[in-house]
Design a protein around this nucleic acid. Structure first.
Lengths: 122, 122
DNA sequence: TCCTTTCATCGATCGCCATCAATATAGAGC
DNA sequence: GCTCTATATTGATGGCGATCGATGAAAGGA
């Protein structure tokens, strides 16, 4: 694997959470991800016309998503099939839980159910 | 309020999800948010020395977080107190659920429990 | 009214990133 | 070997954003 760190700050080693969020924080990449979520597997060739972007640009975005751990890829013949990473949702959940106010707090929020919140601190 | 759209693409009106993710996708802002989550309310003056950044820079980051809907602020006297937006966690949950592979799928993933997944499509 | 404190805005700089056309690489088939 | 298709990489460009110092604006106290 041997990550490429050229042109990297090196003063701090790049928070993986920030890297993941940055990977999602682009309209093209978020659209690609949603396309991937729509059908469990999508060929890269079908993603090329997804955001009206050139093939190299889509390839670049896929690389960013892959290196951030947001998608996984598998080559079959000439084609490469992309899938949403099985770990993605859980990682987002961990990040979100880390932002729940009041230090450590139940968790149920993420499901939409309210945990009768926050008679906690102040 | 009258948002400032100068220097904005205007070809597409900025996906709020992308805007929120972009707000979180910065080491300083994520650290600020986690600081805010730690105690239910933090004065801006206490955030200045949080990331070893200048006061104008922190102020800028707080503005980005505010306009993305990630934090809310309240002025009391000379001080301005920031809190994690009550809607933040739910919005992240909605975004995450939209990325669950297999179209629409239970939801429980976000809590950490596995939903006995995906005898779904292919 | 001044002064001080707290925060926001301005203006400038610099680096990174999204994008593309062109080119390279990889695999399948002949 | 060659050729075609599918992806990746290269190199260049343009724009946006993170950062800072300096300045402005708001609130409270003398």
């Amino acid at each position: 694997m041997t990550m490429d760190y050229s042109g990297c700050d090196m003063t701090r080693p790049i928070d993986p959470d920030v890297r993941l969020l940055a990977a999602l924080a682009d309209p093209a990449r978020l659209e690609i991800l949603r396309e991937l979520a729509g059908s469990s597997e999508v060929c890269a060739c079908d993603l090329t016309d997804c955001c009206s972007l050139s093939q190299p640009t889509v390839s670049h975005h896929l690389k960013v998503l892959r290196e951030a751990g947001a998608v996984v890829s598998e080559r079959r013949g000439t084609n490469i099939y992309y899938r949403v990473s099985p770990a993605l949702i859980e990682r987002l959940g961990v990040i979100a839980r880390g932002l729940v106010p009041g230090g450590l707090v139940p968790v149920a929020d993420l499901t939409g159910r309210r945990p009768a919140v926050s008679a906690a601190n102040n």
